[in-house]
């Protein structure tokens, strides 16, 4: 079942990329997407129908502008540290605990943390994430989790868990 959905999504992407109904393109697309499905379909999520539930899509649409806002803030923060004459840096690697359960949600949390102010995921180990922080405010697990992960977990828990 998940292989079929993977194939449909892949073929849809191929059609969007080529945007032509030429028979050559469609045959090439079927061959390429079929190979991709055999090789990588096993990594696809086990319950694809979960992503079609309306309340998940609703929270996803809310999440995108929030995420872009955090990204712009992150860039202004990095620009400030780059151009400041004294380089205000206090880097370190801290550990945080996440409340998210599913693997997809953890991957999205890690990517969101990487693209937002001063933090970058190094490794995931079960419920714990190791974060490289460009200006460490707190080395305690709970306090650091509150600062780094909470703003995203509120959304990601509703979207993916």
């Amino acid at each position: 079942m998940k292989y079929i959905i993977y194939f449909i999504i892949g073929f849809g992407l191929w059609l969007l990329l080529t945007l032509s109904t030429n028979l050559d393109h469609i045959i090439a697309g079927i061959i390429v997407v079929f190979l991709g499905t055999i090789l990588f379909g096993g990594y696809f999520t086990d319950k694809p129908q979960k992503f079609l539930q309306p309340h998940r899509l609703f929270w996803l649409i809310i999440y995108i502008p929030v995420f872009i806002w955090y990204m712009i803030k992150a860039n202004l923060d990095v620009a400030y540290r780059t151009l400041h004459p004294q380089r205000p840096l206090k880097p370190g690697i801290v550990k945080i605990k996440t409340i998210l359960k599913s693997d997809t949600a953890k991957v999205f949390l890690a990517n969101s943390i990487t693209l937002t102010p001063g933090t970058m995921t190094v490794d995931i180990d079960g419920d714990y994430l190791y974060i490289h922080w460009i200006y460490v405010q707190d080395t305690d697990i709970d306090a650091a989790s509150k600062i780094i992960a909470r703003p995203f977990e509120r959304f990601l828990r509703r979207i993916f868990d």
Partner: peptide, 14 residues
């Protein structure tokens, strides 16, 4: 890590 880093949890644990 850079010499003025203050903490390295990953290094101490892994």
């Amino acid at each position: 890590l850079w010499k003025e880093s203050i903490v390295d949890r990953y290094g101490t644990e892994k």
